[in-house]
Amino acid sequence: MLTVTSYANRTSTLDGKQFFSLELTSDDPEIVLSANGRYYITTKKCYMSATFPEAVCKGMLGKQLPGTISKVECEPYEFVIPDTGEVITRNHRYEFLPVVANV
């Protein structure tokens, strides 16, 4: 399961229109070994575009959605680690994968 933990106002790079996206956070924590040899605990997060107005996005906070977050390869891009300000190059992103019911 994934939990809606936040939302953000975004601007489309195609047409400049504004929209909201929901931040989804995995309920399964992971233990990770950092580059400096120390362990830390984290969860996977991703954003999913929404057609909802801001009031509905606020109401979605805390709701759970069935699905997982998958690591997907992509073109390399620069990413700033929020806690340290360090700029790194990534070649992956995290994507929402819904649970598909068998019919």
Rank of each mutant, 00 (worst) to 15 (best):
M1P: 06
L2D: 03
L2H: 06
L2N: 04
L2G: 06
L2A: 02
T3H: 04
V4H: 06
T5C: 09
T5F: 03
S6P: 06
A8W: 07
N9H: 15
N9L: 15
N9A: 12
T11S: 07
T13G: 10
L14Q: 13
D15A: 07
G16L: 00
K17P: 02
K17F: 07
Q18I: 10
Q18M: 07
F20T: 05
F20A: 02
S21R: 12
L22A: 07
L24S: 00
L24Q: 00
T25Q: 13
S26N: 06
P29H: 10
P29I: 03
P29E: 12
E30K: 14
E30Q: 13
V32L: 12
L33N: 08
L33I: 03
L33G: 02
S34Y: 04
S34K: 12
S34Q: 12
A35F: 04
A35K: 13
G37D: 02
Y39E: 14
I41W: 08
T42I: 04
T42W: 08
T42L: 03
T43A: 11
T43S: 11
K45V: 06
K45Y: 01
Y47I: 00
S49A: 14
S49K: 11
A50F: 01
T51H: 12
P53M: 00
P53I: 09
E54C: 07
E54Y: 03
A55C: 03
A55D: 14
V56M: 03
V56C: 00
V56R: 01
C57D: 01
K58R: 15
K58Y: 03
K58H: 10
G59R: 11
M60R: 10
L61S: 00
L61H: 07
G62Q: 05
K63H: 13
Q64P: 00
Q64N: 09
L65C: 04
L65I: 13
T68I: 05
T68V: 07
I69H: 12
S70E: 15
S70Y: 10
K71E: 14
V72K: 14
V72I: 15
E73M: 10
C74G: 05
C74S: 09
C74F: 08
C74I: 10
P76C: 06
P76F: 02
Y77S: 03
Y77A: 04
E78S: 13
F79E: 13
F79R: 07
V80T: 15
V80C: 06
I81Q: 13
I81P: 06
P82G: 09
P82D: 10
D83P: 08
D83F: 08
D83A: 15
T84W: 04
G85Q: 00
R90H: 12
N91T: 10
N91A: 13
N91Q: 14
N91E: 14
H92V: 10
E95D: 04
F96K: 06
P98T: 00
V100C: 04
V103R: 14
V103P: 15
V103M: 11
